[in-house]
Computed example of a mutant assay.
Amino acid sequence: MGGTDVYGTHGTHAVVPIRKGAIMFAEELRRFPDVFQSPTPASLTLNPALSSPEERSRAVDDVLKTLQARGLVDGWRGELYPVAPSFHAPPLLSLERAAAVHFGIKAYGVHLNGYVRLPGSGALELWVATRSRLKPTWPGRLDHMVAGGQPQGLSCAANIEKECWEEAGVPAELARTAVPVGAVSYAARQAAGVKRDVLFCYDLELPLDFVPQPQDDEVEGFERWPLERVAEGVAGGERFKDNCNLVIIDFLLRHGYLGPDTPGYLELLTGLRSGDCS
């Protein structure tokens, strides 16, 4: 990303990227020198004395709980994200999900497009969720049928099955027919830091008579939309949760709704993996 970004590993020590929008948070971390040190003015690193993933995780968690009590870490989830250079690499530590954006770490999620194929024409329609207006993030916006962060200690397949039931009432035997179809990636600057995500994409063809039913309080309801309406909603840029746009565009490309003669086709293909996809 250029500038004063510092991200990666020095030996076994995770390095935190510092940006102008996160300077205040970085200064707060400097108040804990037993955990965070400053090898250069533009970076923080974990104390080398924290020599194992377990020690680092405990130390960082203690700091984050202190900052959360002071209102500096919002939306505490109680879910741990692994901090690692790539998805299958051993984690250097585990970090509370709500703090991921503050540190600019790469996080992972699963996003599923649930669709039906109409008899006769073969046209596809997507199930679209409306997020609860009580959610702290993107309240009332449109979403996939199923999506969720990828927590530590759970396979993507098991996570899809869990999220399918919790968010849409999809029974396990049907959820297991979801097909992994790739991934999209991005980096987005936010007030708290940099959100760096890799989203594993799944397609799930559903029976015509299946109607999703939310089992938790994250979704208000579902509607089934023709692809043309979905594409218009994405192009409008106002209705869908931002990262859902990418996964839907990927679906539209793969299923031929958008083709090489569509203006911007190659730019769309390139942009879907604009972040570090590793």
Rank of each mutant, 00 (worst) to 15 (best):
P39R: 06
S278Q: 05
G8T: 05
L93G: 06
G114Q: 08
L206I: 09
E223G: 07
C201D: 02
L142C: 06
W127G: 13
Y115R: 10
L44C: 10
G259D: 15
F240I: 12
R56I: 09
V63W: 07
T9K: 04
D261C: 09
E267D: 15
G122P: 09
D74N: 11
C244V: 13
R224K: 14
E54D: 11
V146R: 01
K65Q: 12
T270N: 05
V181G: 00
H102E: 04
P139E: 13
V35H: 13
V219S: 05
L92R: 00
I160K: 05
L29C: 15
T40K: 11
N245P: 00
L142V: 10
R273Q: 10
G153P: 00
G221E: 12
L272D: 03
D250N: 10
E55P: 03
V128S: 05
A14M: 09
A235V: 09
N245A: 13
V170T: 10
G221Y: 13
R77T: 14
D34Y: 11
D250M: 02
V198Q: 05
P91E: 06
W138S: 10
S274Y: 00
A123T: 04
C156S: 11
F25W: 01
A192K: 08
A84F: 03
L124G: 01
W76C: 11
L118D: 13
F103I: 08
F222S: 11
G21V: 01
E218Y: 06
R141A: 10
